[in-house]
Design a protein around this nucleic acid. Structure first.
Lengths: 199, 199, 199, 199
DNA sequence: AATGAATGAGTATTCATTCAT
DNA sequence: CATGAATGAATACTCATTCAT
């Protein structure tokens, strides 16, 4: 009997290794052997924790998005104007650039397979739905407080999400041409300006 | 009279077939056999026109983006306010939904592999650069004419591009939750509103 | 277009190689690689002719039994007493010893898997059924002609078949202890004696 | 008082479980895991009693045949005519049908691997030799007593053994087509009739 | 040019066996 | 003695590419 159930720890170690390998090689080019080597778990051992390569991919999908969701949801209960909170979030993203440079390519691959794999599409549209709810509530706070004009908070939320996603995509394509700090924050400000009460 | 050189025609037939197969199966699951069957060109014949599967992927990449670029570039020389022209473009996108439902998943896959394939990344960042130039000039027209406030036209261009890309991505994830016509046009309007001259 | 359809020839070459490999190693220990090497057909090529290892096994099953059935069926229309014809068949088996030393172990393996694979069991019980019909008709000829006493021809047929099968099995176990010529022919004679008209 | 040495009991439990698993799945498809589950002995524990899967197979081989041998050997010292004793044995086999339906498929697999595994072949030919001795002595009793005609008792023994084996094999292939009671007893009678003194 | 039969490198997964506890 | 987590060797099968025709 193992002294301690380190099963969760092992699963996480595998997931971390998988993320790294997938970022480097893509899902299809990634070899279980690579994940084994990088995680320090033997090839056969991987199958004690995940029943297949696909199972690792799915677990990683869940893992990545639920981690991110956390950092967004806290926005709702922070102090300050909505504008400031959204700009702070944008700023946070800008500071996570290292983690993102690994995570974004993998996320893009998830988006790509979503188009043809129901289970992935379902998960991602559910995640989208959650982001949408959080941002909708946030914008609603701003509308109620008079910080923003009367408009459909849900549409504003979708717009912001699309903007974030689009910027991540552009950044992957050309990290040098797109400084998250300079362009990203300005882009969000254009949107926030567009939501200001009209005189 | 020699038969018309149908080499170009064949290459295009192959590319069309490839797009269809890639959309359905993804690059990795797509079989040369599938492309052969769908194009009507024999398996060995494909290699007379493209030297490898990767060569087909790259040719398709070029083909898809240069087609799209055309429809954007004409904006520059159209009549009317910049706002109207951009909204018209957005409207055009909304009407291309059928073609997009095939093309977008494939584009997402290009973005995904861009992260690890220099040649794809180079091409896409070049494409991005062109879009950026066109939209920058467009926004500059608006700033000059007083339609928009004084701001960095390039940043506005990047913002618009990111918005378009992000919306395409969201739409793929959940076509029902995201009506291009309703959400897409409103999203662009928020941005254009944010660019209006401040009183 | 290949000059000649040599597909059948290839399939047979593969089957011959498979028989040889299976006899030496058994179904499970036999490697597709072995069959490839012995048949001279590349590993991938095997799959052009048979869709799986199991498909080769099934094809071999059919092939082996239908070949054997032929040599039994001709008995019906031969000249001479039934006794002489059956002894001649037994003699024939004794002379096929070389081919049998390869085939019998493989047949035993078919019998072994029949117990747990419906398709194999169905095929073998059908083959049994055919043997039974042929031998039943043969014994009936002998009963009608007065060569044998009045008895159930079908039971006599089953007895003979069981005897042949049992002897093949014993022979495999210990070829030296069981001379087909000496023991086999005597065994059949005991049975034929047991069928003689009683005074 | 030290606990009874339950080593033998464990080994038997394992063997019973193995027989059941092998009958269901065949030697190759059978997993040590299955035997572990069915025997209640942990996977690692199996190796305390048997050093390998093959060792279990061999132990089972010995176990099965020595059990059967016992029931045959008692025939020698029973009362009554040889004919009656042999028919009684045949009858006994007919009544053991349930045990046989598990054991026979496994025995057939032993025969199949005998062709390529010396140790199995040696054991089985030794077992055959013992059966042969017993039946030879039995037939000799019948010849001596005048119940049978003068003939080679050893050949008669081999014939009977072959008949039993062959019937077991046929029965496995198609239990419905071959009623042990009806066909089996009649088959043995044909042979015994063939051994009767000739007038 | 065109074909499609043939090739063989490449990889996810299984499972007998080991060994730290 | 007993356990079951961990190991890694071993193999059927696929498919991009080639090439004889």
């Amino acid at each position: 009997m193992p002294r301690e159930d380190n099963s969760e720890e092992r699963k996480n170690r595998i997931l971390e290794a998988a993320l790294s390998v997938f970022a480097r090689r893509g899902f299809d080019e990634a070899r279980m052997e690579d994940i084994s080597a990088e995680s320090g778990v033997s090839k056969g051992g991987l199958y004690l924790y995940y029943k297949s390569k696909d199972a690792i991919i799915e677990a990683l999908l869940r893992n990545m998005f639920s981690a991110e969701m956390g950092s967004v949801r806290v926005l709702l209960h922070k102090e300050g104007s909505v504008r400031d909170r959204i700009l702070a979030l944008t700023h946070t993203f800008a500071n996570m650039i290292d983690r993102m440079s690994v995570a974004i390519p993998v996320m893009l691959e998830f988006y790509a397979i979503a188009a043809r794999r129901q289970s992935v599409r379902d998960f991602l549209s559910q995640a989208l739905h959650e982001y949408r709810e959080v941002f909708t509530e946030l914008f609603q706070q701003g509308i109620t407080s008079g910080e923003f004009r009367e408009t459909n908070a849900d549409k504003a939320a979708m717009t912001l999400i699309a903007l974030y996603e689009g910027m991540a995509l552009i950044w992957t394509m050309d990290p040098h041409a797109f400084s998250w700090r300079v362009y990203g924050e300005q882009a969000v400000m254009y949107l926030l300006d567009g939501l200001r009460p009209q005189e």
